[in-house]
Design a protein around this nucleic acid. Structure first.
Lengths: 139, 139
DNA sequence: CAAGTAGTTTAGATTAATTCTAAACTATTG
DNA sequence: CAATAGTTTAGAATTAATCTAAACTACTTG
């Protein structure tokens, strides 16, 4: 097994799989994002995190990469806050609690929640996605 | 009767009713916003609209007023776009179609759509609101 | 109804998130 | 291993939104 160094081969393969050139930055970001459980990040939070890990990646690249990952289907963007973009490593069918006081997201499994009665969209349009945001506050 | 001038008394009363001092700007904005059917505006779109009507209201005041109206329950803010805040004159129970290509909102009556199975929020938190956004695209 | 005052408006500066630019860099190809 | 097409980045630019503090006005009081 050699070094205790981070094993980036998974991230490398994942990038190859979606046709993204596995650059050092992208591999590092993918490693951090997809290592453990699902998570929600903002560009800023991710930048702080990787910077704290000693990785050098510019904020512009973080923004670029988050969008590229999203287009590639590796991430999903969650719109809950007018002031800040969140990205979710969970791209499956699910919804969110949004803790307005803290700016935190919590996943709600897609099979727990159901949206019924969505009307037929106006002519010429198709449903792209149905997003449910349960906004919660301190009681 | 008398002049054909805009009748602002409704707007005036509405502002009084929610405890907002009926200044010229607020009366003008309320008149424009609540005159006809329900509508969705952004600060910029509303600013352009009133400017086009020959009313002089600064953008800062538009922002202030939209928020004041929202706090007073006259408007509701809709979060669908990470880059732009929308305000809705319909404050009742309803949801939205969001036409991603055009940045347009269309109301979905609250009694047509149902969200079932919202889990109990984490301890210490209560549900403030459940928002459903049906994102639609050109077919 | 004059004048005080508390609440409002505003131009312009400021902030914050994000995107753009174009020059330097690097993974891949031939 | 050189060519090149795609990538990264610092820093400037953009955009929505907020802040500031000075000018203004609706409402109250004497």
């Amino acid at each position: 097994m050699g070094k205790a160094a981070r094993d980036n081969s998974k991230a490398f393969q994942r990038l190859r799989g979606v046709g993204l050139r596995p650059t050092r930055q992208r591999v590092d970001l993918a490693s951090v994002l997809f290592k453990g459980m699902d998570r929600h990040v903002t560009a800023e939070s991710l930048h702080e995190e990787v910077t704290g890990l000693g990785l050098k990646i510019s904020l512009a690249t973080i923004y670029n990469t988050l969008h590229q990952f999203t287009h590639a289907g590796l991430l999903r963007q969650v719109i809950v806050d007018a002031a800040r973009g969140y990205f979710d490593t969970n791209t499956g069918d699910h919804q969110h609690f949004f803790l307005e006081d803290e700016g935190t997201l919590i996943d709600i499994p897609g099979d727990e929640i159901t949206v019924a009665g969505v009307p037929v969209p106006p002519a010429g349009l198709t449903v792209d996605r149905v997003d449910v945001v349960v906004r919660v506050k301190r009681a």
